[in-house]
Design a protein around this nucleic acid. Sequence first.
RNA 1: GGUCCUGUAGCUCAACUGGAUAGAGCAACUGCCUUCUAAGCAGUAGGUUUCAGGUUCGAGUCCUGACAGGAUCACCA
Length: 596
Amino acid sequence: MNIQANISQGIQQAFQNIFDHQLELEQISLAPTRKEFEGTYTFVVFPFLKVSKLSPEATASKIGDFLKENIAEVADYNVVKGFLNLVLNELSWLDVFQKLITNPNPGQLPANGQKVMVEYSSPNTNKPLHLGHLRNNFLGYSVAEILKANGYEVIKANLVNDRGIHICKSMVAYLKFGNGETPESSGLKGDHLAGKYYVLFDKEYKKQIDELKSSGQSEEEAKKNAPILLEAQEMLRKWEANDEATVSLWKQMNAWVYAGFDATYKKMGVDFDKFYYESDTYLLGKDIVEEGLAKGVFFKKENGSVWVDLTDEGLDEKLVLRGDGTSVYITQDMGTADLKYKDFQIDKSVYVVGNEQDYHFDVLFKIMQKLGRPYGPGLYHLSYGMVDLPSGKMKSREGTVVDADDLMQEMIETAESHTKELGKIEGFSKEQAEELYEILGLGALKYFLLKVDPKKRMLFNPQESIEFQGNTGPFIQYSHARIASILRKAEQIGVDYSKADFSGVKSLAESESGLIFLLNDFEKKIRQAGEDYAPSILAQYLFDLAKEYNRFYADVPIFNENDTSVLAFRVALSAQTAKTIKKGMSLLGISVPDRM
RNA sequence: GGUCCUGUAGCUCAACUGGAUAGAGCAACUGCCUUCUAAGCAGUAGGUUUCAGGUUCGAGUCCUGACAGGAUCACCA
């Protein structure tokens, strides 16, 4: 069906015929030939010398001869040491291209009947989202879209952390210092309002600690005894006892925060199919503890606390229920895992959570597997590194964060000034121009965060603004806009490339066959990105594709071509590239403009 | 201290999962707008892949041990 498969089969036959040896297709790997050598694909023969019982050169030559004779696409070959470089018939790329353009929806693999849940975002309702959340949200959204493209049915879930001591801290500070302030009266977004009081709490808390210390208490005592902390703890007790005033304040503040989050999510371009709230789930999981005890997966200590022993898995013993029968974090996570399965019968479940929780998820997944959950093997922690600032770690309570709303706004403004500097807003209405700035600013930001391997922690320097040139979102967007311009012109002068009559094409420029090679690779990359949960693979691919197109654009004239079928081919090649870029970028959550 | 992650050009990142002379972008320097958008293209320069061993035809990639940075090891979430 495609060139690579044909060649692989040819190699298989070659081994059968020449060496009387049956090779599995999986054993045959074709690598792209390095630029310094002539050829497209390279087959490394070193691993097969035991079979051929010949020198590397002789082995490679024999296989090369066979392929040249029997496989239409192989025009020639050369051998360097144990490397068999296959030179393809230029025009076989044209066949590949003809097949590619018959696919109306490139990059969409057929449904595989599997359901996967991607949980991401998971905000705390006591503070606004910051740069770290942006990485989380963009990653989660992109992985969800990539899995959809791989044929999964995807449920995007958001587990909102809407209860606990941290929310009570904001509430206490609000009661103390708020004077009835509201988002309306203050002009603050609801999430920023809550965040403000979270910071105020911490200030007051530190002040009280200092006071207690100067009156003779130890640091440890002071931290425990500060009145404002005791108030927050008291408020948590009242909340859990369903105290009317407390719950109503909690609801009020949460409502403000959600309104703020909604606006931020909308700007980010992410969405969710299902929300879970910890205020609903925090009591779940106790029945699983019982089940685990019955099955012998858990055991009880003298004080009544319940543990799981994971020492034979290389981990420790881990508490799953306190001695007083109350839950810990992992108790409710066990319960939530079951709840997700009960709600959606998912085959796989992806948790997009920072790498500081690696150990926690390791434990959680091992427990669910020991309990024999059907979804156990499909649990995956998509762990990502922190985003650090030059000044160090971001801390919400100290106010040393790069706020998500601010950063997105800055990016949009930067995009605006870049665009104006380049004088590229002629013919744009005000609305169109603003839409463009948003597409470009967010594109730059998303690409910046997604092109890096998630595992790596990254340093973000606000002073050195995110680039718009080189390996960036706008570079790829620019390539798309160029093609869109070509396509407009083609339509204007009536070029019909839909018939796919490219009969006049007798040879291909390097950039042309290079483009087809990459376009043909799209599906493979989507598959790889899906298997590895790695948007960065796709980002890298799209950069390569855009680069190759720009090379083509500079090398090969389109409208100066006399032969209409050649002209049609080049327009069709452009159109296919645009389609691929657009689809690929959409899987990263990035839109592409038609003009910029 | 135990466990996990990371370490590649001045900076930010790749390297098709063990393949050839380790590639891109930024920054620096040279060229290219009277032809489809110069947010572009072509080129120059930049490397002991943190270090030391090992495994094999072949190691940035696998193993062992150092070194550096980070995370985690709560009856917190």
